[in-house]
């Protein structure tokens, strides 16, 4: 007898953003933790229906921004006052007013890096393989269908009970997806 393929979880399909929104509220209230919603376009307010916590990205941007600014200042200080000291226009070697614009720039640059790569990292992107693409129906997520996937690693996950639960949230179909 062949080994039964491991399950990624259950995928429920919805027809409208409204259906998905209310289903998300029910999944949230049922206490599931390892699940996500998939939509062709951003659905306004869905983060509230899903009960998502505030994103960590602002903190990453904050730390990266101040780090960038500090490094930018230190770089200029080291160049102008330590490595190659030159007196220019009778000003002190550590002429910090002149360093401000170039301190600002790496602050912005590092902040932007923090935003983009922090966002990608928190979304676990790029990903070369995702189990959900094993589902044929899931192709319509880029067109006109809305999905919720509850993953098998969720402690509350139970194949039959969760299937029944998802069907009651108004799903068009619920299928089990291979990992």
């Amino acid at each position: 007898m062949g080994k039964r393929p491991k399950s990624f979880g259950l995928l429920a399909e919805y027809e409208t953003p409204g259906d998905l929104y209310h289903a998300c509220e029910q999944v949230r209230d049922a206490g599931y933790a390892a699940w996500d919603a998939y939509t062709p376009f951003p659905v306004h307010g869905l983060e509230k229906a899903m009960g998502l916590r505030a994103s960590l990205v602002p903190w990453i941007v904050c730390v990266m921004g101040f780090t960038g600014a500090a490094l930018g200042f230190l770089m200029q200080y080291w160049m102008a006052a330590v490595d190659y000291p030159l007196i220019i226009a009778a000003k002190p070697l550590n002429s910090y007013p002149a360093f401000v614009p170039i301190t600002f720039e790496p602050g912005i640059l590092f902040g932007a890096f923090g935003a983009v790569f922090g966002m990608l990292g928190l979304n676990k992107l790029p990903q070369l393989y995702h189990s959900l693409f094993n589902s044929k129906n899931f192709a319509r997520v880029t067109d006109d269908r809305f999905f919720i996937a509850i993953e098998a690693r969720d402690p509350r996950y139970h194949t039959e009970d969760t299937t029944k639960f998802l069907e009651e949230t108004g799903a068009l179909s619920v299928e089990e997806v291979e990992d």
């Binding site: 226009a89 009778a90 007013p97 002149a98 401000v100 614009p101």
Partner: peptide, 12 residues
């Protein structure tokens, strides 16, 4: 404020 200050400080 800084743009005003820095150019004046720089040019002396």
């Amino acid at each position: 404020a800084f743009s005003q200050y820095m150019l004046i400080w720089y040019a002396t």
